[in-house]
Design a protein around this nucleic acid. Structure first.
Lengths: 211, 211
DNA sequence: AGTGACAGTTAATGGTCTTAACTACGGTTA
DNA sequence: TAACCGTAGTTAAGACCATTAACTGTCACT
């Protein structure tokens, strides 16, 4: 019942320090390069000591994924609350991704076949989607319904509030997939050689979203 | 100068067998799970024996990447030569990806910061782009030029033949990025929970490409 | 029939993650 | 103040992993 803050505070401090070293390693050489041995060496500790703070390599990675989702969700929400329109929102996300590409790939990159993110993490992921849908609610509903639109009418249980139209959901999906399409290819370097500016491609792709 | 086929043929045989085991491991548990030790065990060999066939783990991976690109390029080209339209082409690519998601991610997934694909591999990658551009040449050039379109006019040295219009290049980029956007998120499982059919989303996204 | 190239072996090095058992310290309580 | 207990950290050990070096046998060609 007593205030045992110091112990707990130190613990959080060290956990944070471990994550920071982990982030640096991943940013520099990718997730496979994340090494507990290297972290321990940088912190002047022995490797098993790290297990006091994380159950193992996987739990550390999971924590980093959670942080990345949290950071993205906060960034997107803050921008949306500041009245950013869809195009501005896209560039906020792009800037966030380009600041640390490997962090973006930690979230949206190659999945591990067995791995399933813990529920709280996917919940944060949904936050992002909610903001995107809300931002897309500004534009009205389209007059002509596409095949996918009518399909979505009967497959949108996952978006709880019925205050948003199906059109907003569809546009949010378009926004998300188009942005991710350009962004992930850009970050992966698949546009090098082609000398165009990906930012302009994004603008173009999202301009057609007005429908 | 003599016909030393048997040795060479056996060599290619074994190289292929190694790749097959590697492919299975990656398909099941992702690239990080690729283990030379496991391959050797499955082939009833010792690990160092594998080094007769590949300089190391990295060269084996590179070979797999090259094969994947080759397979995709051939598949796309074959479909295009059979007169498949853009939508059909998209579904051919999607089917190819869904048949072995990890193979798709081997090509378009999370990049390793240091790694640069060998020139011959990127050349195959360009083949795919060429086919896409060619397929997009069918539709004519748009009357109104977007900002990105005019930007692309001055940044398209990478597409050699001047027989294709800038509009075709732009549409090919849209096609590629939109398809990849939906497909990569689908394969990574980011749509699970949302119960819609990604195939219909792709149809919708590409339908708007007619512009 | 002999020779050389090559497949495959064993052995050794160094790296990784992980668990178990032990030590020592620091704060809490009697 | 003295005993105690939880916890951070250690050493030791096991099980993987990739890679290199040195050796052996075999097969194909001269």
């Amino acid at each position: 019942m007593t205030e045992q803050a110091p112990r707990e505070r130190y613990r959080e401090q060290v956990r944070g320090e471990i994550k920071q070293h982990a982030r640096n390693q991943i940013a520099e050489a990718g997730l496979p390069a994340l090494s507990l041995t290297a972290i321990a060496k940088q912190m002047s500790m022995t490797v098993p000591a790290l297990y006091r703070y994380y159950r193992g390599r996987d739990e550390l990675i999971t924590a980093l994924i959670r942080d990345a989702f949290r950071s993205l969700a906060d960034t997107v929400r803050a921008a949306a609350d500041s009245g950013a329109d869809l195009l501005a929102l896209a560039h906020v996300i792009r800037d966030w991704a380009k600041a640390d590409p490997q962090r973006y790939f930690l979230i949206y990159g190659t999945p591990v076949p067995g791995y399933h993110a813990p529920p709280d993490t996917t919940a944060i992921s949904n936050e992002v989607m909610e903001v995107l849908i809300k931002a897309n609610s500004a534009l009205g509903e389209p007059e002509s319904a596409t095949t996918f639109h009518v399909h979505l009418e009967t497959h949108r249980e996952w978006v709880d509030s019925d205050t948003v139209g199906t059109g907003a959901v569809r546009r949010a999906l378009s926004f998300w997939t188009r942005l991710h399409g350009v962004l992930s290819l850009e970050l992966a370097g698949h546009f090098t050689g082609m000398k165009f500016d990906p930012a302009l491609l994004i603008d173009d792709e999202l301009a057609e979203l007005k429908a």
